[in-house]
Design a protein around this nucleic acid. Sequence first.
DNA 1: AAGGGTTGTTGCGCTTGACGAAACGCAGTC
DNA 2: GACTGCGTTTCGTCAAGCGCAACAACCCTT
Lengths: 261, 261
Amino acid sequence: MVDTVPSPAVTGAGVQSVDRALGILEVLARTGESGVTEIAAELGVHKSTAFRLVATLEAHRLVEQTADRGRYRLGVGILRLAGATTARLDLVQEARPIARQLAADTGETVNIAVLAESSALYLDQVAGSSALQPHNWVGQHIPLHATSNGKVLLAGLDDAGLEAVLGTLATYTPRTITGHRELREEVARVREQGYAVAVDELEVGLTAVAAPIRNAHGDVVASMSVSGPSFRLTEEQVQDVVRLVVAAAVEVSHRLGWGHR
Amino acid sequence: MVDTVPSPAVTGAGVQSVDRALGILEVLARTGESGVTEIAAELGVHKSTAFRLVATLEAHRLVEQTADRGRYRLGVGILRLAGATTARLDLVQEARPIARQLAADTGETVNIAVLAESSALYLDQVAGSSALQPHNWVGQHIPLHATSNGKVLLAGLDDAGLEAVLGTLATYTPRTITGHRELREEVARVREQGYAVAVDELEVGLTAVAAPIRNAHGDVVASMSVSGPSFRLTEEQVQDVVRLVVAAAVEVSHRLGWGHR
DNA sequence: AAGGGTTGTTGCGCTTGACGAAACGCAGTC
DNA sequence: GACTGCGTTTCGTCAAGCGCAACAACCCTT
């Protein structure tokens, strides 16, 4: 196969039609909703081709159309697959009931994240009781240096690994840590105290507290966080939340075999 | 195309290779982990075909292999897509058309409520066809122990959470459940039968039936109810309404990803 | 160590199945 | 009412994907 066209959205490896179909899923994930013509243009293929691929995806419930002759968006089949994906991760299985309890106790949203290729990958989320809820982070890659989860995961690395993932540190808010030296100091602090706090570092008005989850060997395999609007998580409240998050993370760690000699 | 083999797992509609690739995802969702040979047998295709499809899926991170030459399982790309899906999946938005249909079928008012800090918060309401209509509850906080919606939401909690929200139980009518023990029994009954009924418990002359709405993890995230004057919702009518409400709630749950496995 | 029996992986022709062009039905809209 | 946009359908063509078979690691048992 030769690269005749730039083909912007398609990686171009493997079975062509499958490759294009998966490209459609990615387009829909990015745009939220698109028409056949729009998708075809994005992939650089003919309308009819895009239509046939979309129809196949629709037969498997991976996409659905909004009206009888309307645009397309991602469907519930994706959620079923996602459920099966997390079901096999015993980390999520073990952590879920504890995360749910933590969400109930704090009234805020609980997230579980792992380290994946220089960023934090969010595996699971339990919504807090409040009507005001943040958007769903599950499946998203989030910068390590601007989140409480990320700092906990960084603190779990040794110095060599830490160095490897530190590239340029993007600025999200005035409070984002952007200097290598400051970040290293912050990571050392997290390591020492066993938890991390991030106030307005990723988004102004967003506060989060995170603690490490360890496996039987004591390695930090994941991070559990409570996050909510800064006006609800004031400095004194954070102190209470820290205790709860750390206790919950320790409980999960125990379930994963940590601390049993 | 002729049906040479039964081809059990594949629907057989649309673009063949895409259809097969998506079939692989479904196989992996079901088995959790499979080898190329196993997958090929399941789809009724040659090993090499299965391998190429799997490799394409892997390029998009939808599947990943356990070791360098190992079996395959669903990958993190699925989670990423799921994140984009739930971002667009609003409970109210998904439930709206179904609630409207339910209101049309029953002729009564349909409400959707979530749990919010020891009370039921009404998110949406679709008016029934009758001229006699209750006032609009949207945005109001309603006691959990005196409504069908509230009892469904209580039934979705574990025992610890249930205990936490049970304070003093206010009396609204002679039929309001006010004893902790009776309420616990009622909640247990709701849990078992999958729906709740409240007759004259909040207001004399007001009858309501509610069923739980679940997310992809099976958690009860909301409750959907049909309510109307008790003289229209007689005991026999309630039986029909129960079926309709439960069916509607299940349909909404499916749209939110519930029902895998 | 040597053997058979598994895996997952890779070239290679043949042909089937997916592609693009164009036409179609249906909504709005000027 | 012609026009323009959409999603959908049909159809002939040809290359893209398929099955075959050989390959390379890995387990077993011998």
